[in-house]
Every structure is written in C-alpha cells, then in structure tokens.
Design a protein around this nucleic acid. Structure first.
Length: 582
RNA sequence: GCGCUGAUGGUCUAGUGGCUAUGACUGAGGCCUUCCAAGCCUUAAACCCGGGUUCGAAUCCCGGUCGGCGCACCA
C-alpha cells in the first residue's frame, strides 16, 4: 500500500474525503469533503484569507459561478478552451487534429474543424498508430454549458476559473480602491472544467476550489514596496535554465531578481508569499519548489510564470499554485468585447506642458458640405500634418473614396496644453491556488506511520498512524477524555469541554473505549492536544494534557485551561511551559 | 475517449456454480479498567448496477458505473 492509498483510506474512514454520489455508484471527478475534511479545508482557506485579504489587503469578492457567454468569449475560453480531436475509425485512438496537420499548414492551431477535415482529406492523413482511416474532427470544449432563464434562454457557462469575475469588476474595484495602483481582489470558490478523464483522486476534479488573487499593478513599475520582507528568503527555484540542467537551485529571491531569473520584484514577492503560506499550513520545505514555465508552455501573453510544485508520493511533483504576470491581456480583451475602456487615470506628480499640433475641423461648415460623412471626414483631417493642411484644397480618403475638402473649413495650430496625467492599463499579477491539491498535499505531508513501544519491555512495537497537522489547521484542536466512564469524571469533563468551546476552539469529547484507543483515534485525525480528567482532578482541579507528536504529558490547572490551549495553538506557546511535566 | 485490470460489511479480506457468505479490525451498548489500539459479554453491518446462461449466479457471459495503470487530454 503506497502513501496515497494509506492517506485516502484514512481520509475515507475518518470523514475527510468521500466519493460523491457514492449511493448511486459515484461519478468520476467529484469528491465530497466530510466533516473533518470540510473543517480542514476551511482552516486552510482561512489562513489564505489571513495572508491575502487581511495582510496584503486584497479584498475578497464573490461573483457568480455561472457566467454569460460574452465573458468567456472575451477571456478566450469559448474559442480556445477546447481542442479539436479526431478519432481513428479502426483502432479508436483519439488524436489532436491540429497536431496531425501541423507539417502541412502554417497555423494549424487556428483552423476550425471543417478546415482541419479538409486538410486531412486532401493530404490523405492516416492514423499514426495503425494507418487506419480517420473520422471527422470535433471540438472538445472543457466548459460546462448551461442555460440561463426558461426555454432555450441565454447561453451560460460554469466558470472555469474565478479570475474572470475580478476582471469584469475591474472598474468597480478601481473606484473602490480610489484609483490607486497597485490594488487587488481575491476570490475563493468553485470552478468547473468538464475534464475528459479525471483521475488521481482529488488532484484532477471536474468541480474544484480555487483561491485566486488578481493584483493590478503599474506596468512601468513592477517593484514591490515591501520586497525586503522576502529578499533574503531562500527558495527552491527550478528555473528554465535549471530545468535544462535538471538541478533545482537554492537561491534567495533578491538574488533571483538581480540575476534576472525572476522577471521582477513584484512576481518574486508573490513567490515569497506563496512559499510562506504553503509552509505555514504544513507543506514540507524540501518537497516544495518553484518551477518556471518554459517559453513554449507559457501562455503567449504572459511575461513570466512560476508554478509552486509539491512532491507527492505517488504523483511526483504536482502543480498546486500558478503565479503569472498576465500583463494587460485580460483587461484589453474585456475592453475589446465590452467596448469599454478598462484603464486607470494616473495623475503625474507634476503636470506636463506639452506642445502639440492641434487640428480643429469646423463642424459648422463640414456638416452641410458632407452631411452623414462629416464625422468621418473630420476624423481623417485630424491625423494630417501641418504641411498637408496648408493646401487650399485638401484631399482625404474616407471609406475608400477620395474626398476634396476646402482648406478654410479646418483650423490648426501649435498649442501648448497642460497634461496632468494619463490613462494606463494595469498589468495583472495572478497567484492562482488549487485548494483541493493543497488539501491533499497537506494530508500526505502530515501523514506518518510510526512504531511505538509496547507497555512492557518485551512487548512488540506497534504502528500508530498519525497526522502531524500544524496546530492551526487541525480540524480538531483538543480532545476531552475522561479517563474512566464514570459519572464523577464525566461531569467535570463536560464542563471543561464547554469552557474550551467558549474560547472558540474546535473540541471533541470522547469517552468510549480505553484511554489508549482514544489517544490513537485522535492521533489518526491529527488532534494536537488531549486533555484527560482523572481522580486527581477531583482533588486538586488539575488535568493532564498530552502532546500528539511527543506523546509527553503535563499537568495543568483547569482554571484558565482555555487560554493555555489557545496560546499553544495560535501563539506558539511551548507545550513544556504550559504545566508540570509528568 | 481507447487498451489492460480490479470491485464482498465502515476498513482489510476468505470464498471460483449449491450461501442461510469467512475472518480480523473498526463502530455501538454494557461489564471491567487510574494514562497510550488490554480483557469479557451483547450487538450492528457487505456480494457495484442492469441484462443473459442455469433448477440454482457473489462465482460464468454481455453491457454499464466506479477505482488503478498505460495512451490521449490537462487552455
């Protein structure tokens, strides 16, 4: 049994992950988060919020998970989020139709299925596997379609990423942030991709959770005001160059920017932040690296892109976060489709006095002369030079037609104008997290099977399963265990339970089975601390606290125990300092 | 989508035409029990779905679903 199997088996048994729709046989690509899984996931998301929303100040928004067609026409998903496939009629093998004709035409990936079929037929392309005849090509779009409203309604799609919601709200966001760059927005939510063949458990889902930040920055200044925070942070960088050599290098983010390995400070800061976040939730430092996209795998509009990759036992290095400089691509795309300028007005520190050549067509005269064409004529005149305008009669071309304009209907002059700022289209830096993959990695990296000695010297060792979750993410933070199932111990135990719940801690009460069994149960779900109530408790009002990882125990007073546990979980108070060692 | 392969209580598993389905662990109730899966009693819980062959199917055949692996796909 490999680690994946062990973790998934535990996850199923203990209520972290279940196959969705199991009652009806299940469907590939969907998972339910059980009671503990759901809690663990929320804890991870909460730390993400703490990192991006509270600390970085990128406020969270919530846009619909269904989008209208225009949004995905602009984003390119309607046209581009699909691939032309083509199956062999004999061996049923499927191929990328555009790849089959790559050598025959210049731009195979721009052709539609009809054009592809034509080229396949003309060149008598056969199946590369068995030389069989190829069937008709078809588009495989990975978006879930739906209808908005009754009847045929309006075409809608389930969003394939949360990002678009933030681009669409750009003008509102800009106003909210008082039009000052940089600013950013975040979204945590479900996205949907109708994968052809989802596999690998929670690694590739049809419905999955993303946490994305879209940070809008000044295209002319990609420095980061707080870069000093991570300049000395050493990370595992797997740059394009390093990948050629096959060696991951340990290098500080400051040095990586200096050497030009990472395109700029702002991107490097985001890598630092991701590194910080992943370690905080319990990803092992030596199983985490940042891999640069190779030139040919990077989206054409991106300047630089780095994936955070986590090493897993079965799947090797898995991409869990993408950090990209998407430039102004998305805002421009939405500006084009929506016919709305998506830019921000940036005032200069000092207004510039600029001498310009200004053309002022006299519309009062042009109007009667050219009627409906007057506007087009005026526009044509505006782009002419002083020399051309000085003619007595000026010839311009409007809609392919030569038009002669008398010189006296247009004024022009050198003017000095005050320009106090300019419209700029911000560039977008996008950290995009796949929460489900991070969830699984957190479980796998926390999972351990260790041998512990038996009670007596001569007893055999036995295995204990343990999830060494960081205290902050553990779905149960403290277990309350009366040592014996007796009324006089149960009563104070229940009291302590409510004391801890008052403090907002995640508490579980368990009085079934022997104490050893209950410790094992709690180790297996990663509960960091267990509190036992015994007969000494009735005498002196103290309880035993047991530490999950070391299995050590201390004795501490009931009075104020909720503050003690809280401090150990959230304020890195040392376990040893919390009471008298036993 | 294709090929190979598998599917039995919550988990792991025995069973290869006669089943009223094996066992362990786990769960629940109780007894016992003063700190690391102890013991005893009681108890709950399964043949993936649909067809077919057969007197009879968990078992054989076909189709589907789900899982694993390989191919393809993963903007």
């Amino acid at each position: 049994m490999d680690k994946y199997e062990q973790v998934i088996e535990l996850a199923k048994r203990r209520g972290f992950l279940w196959n969705s729709f199991e009652l009806y046989g299940g469907t590939a690509g969907f998972y339910d988060y059980g009671p503990l899984g759901s809690t663990l996931k929320r804890r991870i998301e909460q730390i993400w919020r703490e990192t991006y929303v509270v600390q970085e100040g990128f406020m969270e928004i919530e846009a619909p998970t269904i989008g209208i067609e225009e949004v995905f026409v602009a984003s390119g998903h309607v046209g581009g989020f699909s691939d032309p496939l083509c199956e062999c009629k004999d061996c049923r093998e499927a191929f990328r139709a555009d790849h089959l004709v790559e050598d025959m035409v210049a731009c195979a990936d721009a052709l539609n299925v009809e054009e592809l079929d034509k080229i396949i037929a003309e060149n008598n392309v056969r199946c590369p596997e068995c030389e069989g005849e190829l069937g008709e090509s078809y588009e495989f779009n990975l978006m879930f379609r739906t209808n908005i409203g009754p009847g045929t309604g309006r075409q809608g799609y389930m969003r394939p990423e949360t990002a678009q919601g933030m681009f669409v709200d750009f003008l509102r966001l800009a106003r909210f942030y008082r039009e000052k760059l940089p600013f950013g927005a975040t979204q945590i939510g479900k996205s949907y991709r109708n994968e052809i063949s989802p596999r690998q458990g929670v690694i590739r889902l049809r419905e999955f959770t993303q946490a994305e930040a879209e940070i809008f920055i000044d295209p002319n200044n990609k420095k980061h005001a707080n870069f000093g925070r991570f300049a000395d942070t050493v990370v595992n960088l797997y740059s394009e160059e390093a990948q050629e050599k096959g060696i991951v290098e340990k290098i500080s983010l400051g040095e990586a920017v200096e050497k030009g390995t990472i395109a700029h400070e702002f991107l490097a800061y985001q890598i630092g932040l991701t590194n910080h976040f992943l370690k905080r939730i319990g990803i092992a430092a030596d199983k985490l690296r940042f891999r640069q996209h190779l030139k040919d795998e990077m989206a054409h509009y991106a300047i630089d892109c780095w994936d955070a990759e986590i090493e897993t036992d079965r799947f090797g290095w898995v991409e869990v976060v993408g950090i990209a400089d998407r430039t102004d691509y998305d805002l421009k795309a939405h500006a084009n489709v929506s016919k709305t300028e998506l830019s921000i007005y940036r005032e200069y520190s000092e207004p510039k006095m600029v001498t310009q050549f200004v053309v002022k067509p006299n519309m009062g005269k042009l109007g009667p002369l050219f009627k409906g064409k007057a506007k087009a004529v005026a526009d044509a005149l505006k782009v002419l030079t002083q020399e051309e305008l000085e003619q007595e009669s000026i010839t311009v071309t409007v809609d392919g037609e030569e038009v002669t304009v008398p010189g006296d209907v247009v004024d022009f002059a050198e003017e000095t104008v005050k320009i106090s700022g300019e419209n700029i289209i911000p560039h977008v830096i996008e950290p995009s997290y796949g929460i489900d993959r991070i969830f699984y990695s957190t479980m796998e990296h926390a999972f351990a099977e260790e041998m512990v000695g038996g009670k007596e010297e001569d007893e055999d060792e036995e295995a204990r399963n343990i999830l060494r979750f960081k205290k902050e993410v553990a779905p149960v933070q403290v277990a309350i265990l009366p040592l014996l199932t007796r009324e006089e111990l149960i009563t104070p135990a229940k009291k302590i339970e409510s004391q801890l719940k008052q403090k907002g801690l995640l508490v579980s009460y368990d009085d079934s089975g022997t104490i050893g069994r209950r410790y094992r149960r709690n180790d297996e779900i990663g509960t960091p601390y267990s509190i036992t109530i015994d007969y000494d408790t009735l005498e002196d009002n103290t309880v035993t606290i047991r530490d999950r990882d070391s299995m050590k125990q201390i004795r501490a007073p009931i009075d104020g125990i909720e503050d003690l546990v809280y401090e150990m979980i959230y304020m890195s108070r040392e376990f040893e300092s919390a009471g008298k060692a036993l």
